[in-house]
Nucleic acid binder design. Structure first.
Lengths: 159, 159
DNA sequence: GAGCAAAAGGTGCATATACACTTATTACAA
DNA sequence: TTGTAATAAGTGTATATGCACCTTTTGCTC
């Protein structure tokens, strides 16, 4: 009876095998990708520091620069970001006077454009970005970097 | 005089060339990495849905499973995450009863371990993770996936 | 042992992210 | 033309992320 009870308890003590957990940590695409993103974002953020922009903000300005005038929905699709996340990120840069938000002809939509201040911030940040990007390219080597970028694009295109 | 003034104004209208902005969007390591991370995280989150865990939470439990008992600082270093971010993420899973936080022998430290509930959640989530991971592997093909993972590791190891 | 530097962790603040739900506008069909 | 479905966006809530600053504890030196 006592031994039965012990067996019952030991059933509750089931654990993921250590080997399995180790393997997961080494191979999980999501975990390793997020880890790299933390490292790389901090690298670009540090490089962009003098511009007052964070990497996420600079890339958002860049996307608008290319697509303006653009709606929230279209921009969200272009940068593979949830529409509501984009809405809030845009609002923040709008408060800083870098993005202009106007009603579109279709009144359901918003027409996003860069303000003069936004354009100037982007121009100022560019050489800092270029330097950071160059350092990564140099560290990885052009070939490995190109192949990596290709792999990353494959992930974005996941069905 | 009028033309001089116009020239002055046109200086203020400097813009990042469209070509340059396009090139940045296509090549920026940070932007493309973050884009992929959004896509991949949403993919794993969807797969893990039935377990009630998000991908970030499952990987945190896994890391603790491997290293327990572990301090905040050591765990943060292992998963390349800011110490304060980790602190808060650990607190959330502690509130859910999956992680136990105790004072270490050195009273400055915290000793993190999985609770029974944490172990069980991890065991339950594992097959869901395995399926998602398998689908990515299948979609990319083993070779491309392995080379991608290697590239991602290179990024993590950036100087 | 007193005092100070170093180490570990927490808190305040700000941004990034996305799901569920709501609101406003448009398009379309009966 | 009217009522309803579809579309675009905003809001509530929750988690993830990291910097600057603070508190507690330890270790070390005199």
């Amino acid at each position: 009876m006592a031994s039965e009870k012990r067996r019952e308890i030991s059933t509750n003590l089931e654990r993921l095998p250590l080997e399995t957990a180790l393997e997961m940590g080494k191979t999980c695409t999501c975990f390793n990708l997020r880890k790299a993103t933390r490292r790389v974002t901090s690298f670009y953020d540090a490089a962009l520091k003098p511009s007052g922009l964070k990497a996420t903000q600079m890339t958002l300005l860049t996307a608008i620069r290319v697509l303006e005038p653009v709606t929230i929905k279209r921009l969200a699709k272009a940068i593979v970001m949830d529409r509501t996340t984009l809405s809030r990120n845009v609002s923040l840069l709008s408060k800083k006077g870098m993005i202009d938000i106007e009603p579109g002809d279709d009144l359901r939509t918003r027409k996003l454009t860069l303000t003069e201040h936004g354009h100037m911030a982007l121009v100022a940040a560019f050489p800092l970005w270029q330097k950071a990007q160059g350092e990564i390219l140099k560290e990885l080597g052009t070939d490995r970097w190109a192949s990596l970028l290709e792999g990353i694009s494959d992930l974005v295109a996941l069905t």
